[in-house]
Design a protein around this nucleic acid. Sequence first.
RNA 1: GCCCAGGUGGUGGAAUUGGUAGACACGCAGGACUUAAAAUCCUGUUAUCAUUGCGAUAGUGCGGGUUCAAGUCCCGCCCCGGGUACCA
Length: 1015
Amino acid sequence: MEYNFREVEKKWQQYWAANKTYKAENQSTKPKYYVLDMFPYPSGAGLHVGHPLGYIASDIFARYKRLKGFNVLHPMGYDSFGLPAEQYAIQTGQHPEITTKTNIARYREQLDKIGFSFDWDREVRTSNPDYYKWTQWIFIQLFNSWYNKKTNKAENISTLISCFESNGFKGTSDDILTGDLEIYHDGFTAEEWKNFSEANKEQVLQQFRLAYLSDTMVNWCPQLGTVLANEEVKDGVSERGGYPVERKLMKQWSLRITAYADRLLNDLEGIDWTESIKEAQRNWIGRSDGTSLKFKVENSSAEVEVFTTRPDTIFGVSFVTLAPEHELVAQITTATQKNAVDEYVTFAKNRSERERMADVKKITGVFTGAYVIHPFTGKQIPIWIGDYVLAGYGTGAVMAVPGHDSRDYAFAKHFDLPIIEVVAGGDLSKESYDAKEGKLINSDFLNGLEVKEAIKKAIAVIEEKGLGKGKTNFRLRDAIFGRQRYWGEPIPVYYKDGIPHVLKESELPLMLPEVDKYLPTETGEPPLARAKDWKYEGKYEYEYSTMPGWAGSSWYFLRYMDAHNEKTFVSKEAVDYWQNVDLYIGGAEHATGHLLYVRFWTKFLNDLGLIPVIEPAKKLINQGMIQGESAFVIICTFPKIEFFTKNKELKINNIPPIYISKGKALEIEKGNKVEIEKYLSFCNDILVEFNPDFKNYKFNDLQNGYKLTLTENCFHTGEAIPGSRTPIEYVSGKNILDIGHYSAWRAETYKNLGVDISKLVFKFYLEDDAQYICHREVEKMSKSKWNVVTPDTMVEQYGADCLRLYEMFLGPLELSKPWNTNGITGVSNFIRKLWRLYHQGQKNESQNSKEETFYISEEKASKDELKALHKTIKKISSDIENFSFNTSVSNFMICVNELTDLKCNKREVLEPLTIIIAPYAPHIAEELWNRLGHSESITYAAFPECNESYLVESSFNYPVSFNGKTRFFQEYDLSLTKEQVEKEVLTLEQTQKYLEGKTPKKVIVVHNKIVNIVI
RNA sequence: GCCCAGGUGGUGGAAUUGGUAGACACGCAGGACUUAAAAUCCUGUUAUCAUUGCGAUAGUGCGGGUUCAAGUCCCGCCCCGGGUACCA
């Protein structure tokens, strides 16, 4: 019998499930190893071929570690709160919980078919109340904590309260202030604190809690009644629906991640993550060291405080720029400039996102009429306002050094302000010289110093004179933690007299209530406000926003350790044993989202003494994205018809769009006259069909000098016309569209939009062979792009082992590439070839087929056979450790090819081979292992060691090159010294031929590598 | 603009510290087996020139450089992909 993967794979999948083969115990004498995948969001399109790429890699590693004697934790779960289910609920009225359950069931079925070694007893779902109970619990801990700058740790808010009770608070200058304080609170004495009302106390505490209410600028979309993320806003309108978006101040729950900025940055040093992810996080956190510096405003008591990283350029300051929102603007503006300033501030404030995006390069600003006094030279320096200065960063004011900052330079050039050179090395007539290199000039006491020394000296002098203070700023902003959505964790907060209170632990979970619709209320409140009688103790309003998508994923790695614990989020024993993730695999797109938040929560939980680790994952690998090949139809409307018909006073209505086949479209676009004629006559027929008056006209007559420009006027590919995307299941491998299915699908979507489809006609303009050819583009695989390929058909056709090997064989794990199945037969052949090694084929003459029976020899293996095996063991071991799974597959192929040539069927070779291949192709390995006479699963066998003695070579075939160019090969015993090889090579007849009678200048012999003769 | 990653045959890709460029596959071409097809096996396959055979030359995005030797190291540039948006 040929290898029957369907039977074998099913058999072992059932065996693994029945025997709980992959169950991990929370204690063991073995060393522990935790392999984690970023868990998926269960989308309605099902698992696509991109998902398993990382899962297969981590599964191979988990299985390898088990063979190496580790107690492996390899769990899987679902990030099951999220927008798509909610969107679907809005459209269909179906409860997101139902959709989510269905989707999860489908994911599970697909995952099971690929043979992953997950411990399913530990599955988590972030939308399950017994999971989100603990997400809410962690939120409460954040609410009840503040960040103590002195201990550099989060502490219970009670320690802050007792500090207020005994010492009061010194206001903005107090060093217990942390992070992204929006409003700097005035100072108060201990006595005053005691007399504060509860509301007043809470207002103060809100400035310190790690979870707090803040006023933040959000993208508000009135039509959708909701707040949108930056990525949901395109060109000032919502990506979905295209409704206008405005900036609005809103009370929102935020998390004070900025308190952890320094630790998040510094601790990157200790983790083995890819340099690109670490770099992305460093940039995101954006630490900049500099100094604050005060400039006195002339004829005023006011001071402008700026933040700068280049105090060395202080003598190059030629103006000061304030953000339009800066609090001093109104105060300092002179009477003569008042109108201009007011106008500009209004303009800048109302400038929509769209405008800002449209003219990023446009420089705007206005002079206030006021001046500051330069602290060292005493000169007058004008104060300007410019919207290139951001209110929310630093002090909202900059000292402009146009000579050495490109933005200041552009501003100075535009408004014709002086540019002073203070660092030598650039050409300021062309551009600013921003590099931190060179010697200071025109700078009084800094003259002659290198930039780095000058910075130090400048800060020292500034501090000495009390003008400012060395300071560090971060780009990182506090994380907004509320979403005006239904399908997320309810925030466990209720309001009593407008003061937020958190629920008691015993009151958790705060269940997501039922609502009649998943939409905002008429007054613009989030969907939870629709819930009937949903009040704390029947009278107090709950918080109506829910947590963001990243809440559940910020701690899930801990829950897997102790998934069913009802008493705590994770038991001390479990987390003390498993610690943190040893290997984490997932997409690089989470670099500054999930991967930063999960590090933040881990540090916070560690501060409270709840877990022993400060980082979630020791090692992180990013898998590349598997892209899809989207298909498009090319839609041509009649944009010019209206124009022509106006002149001719012809009326036409409801002309359908024409779907033009790609080959024809290209010809027409190229200006092929014959094709254009044909196409226009096709169009004319359609016009006549819709308005018989047209029969008197030839379309050609109408056009009258009209040049058909497909891209601009007529043809739309891609996004230009919604709906040009085509589900790839209606398009063949050769891009031929199944017109029947496509039309039916199209009609269905129109019907859902409420269009009367009884009169709907689709017009297809075909190729000469009567086929319709689609356009293809490579892009991200996603349900919305209709280009999802699921692994189901591949598993059905080739088996799980084949899919596993093939996805690895495609190329390096980290690389992104479009999905194609061109090479799958090679892998499929390999699996059959592997099977045949263990079986004896007998030709069955009568049926003209081959009978294969299991056939293994107990003889001692030959030297060549052992060499083939051990070479492979060595290579595979190093490949796995380096996550180079694609080369492993190649090497299995090489090994099997060699053993096939050697006709090797010896147990001594095939048994170890079965084990090393088991992590990659577990089903066939289990079957072969079983046939080899083992009753236990191969999962816990021992990974074979490489015996180097089989690999020792006695001779080497030296490539002999002349001036670096290889000419021939000569084999020498490895015992020969360099000198002996050199001598031997020079005596060769071939050498003499290439020397052409000349004496070599030099002969290089690298032992076991190469001989190079220089002439 | 800035940051990151990448660019090698018709295709996916391989090439530990600089040391035989193109492993392993796919595809293609030819052949064997077969009535035939499928499956399987064998041979060839970077390009150009030459060819009876031996070969010769060029070649890892482009231009320089270091070296006995460069896909690999250095300098400058181009292209594709990802991230980010005026962060002083």
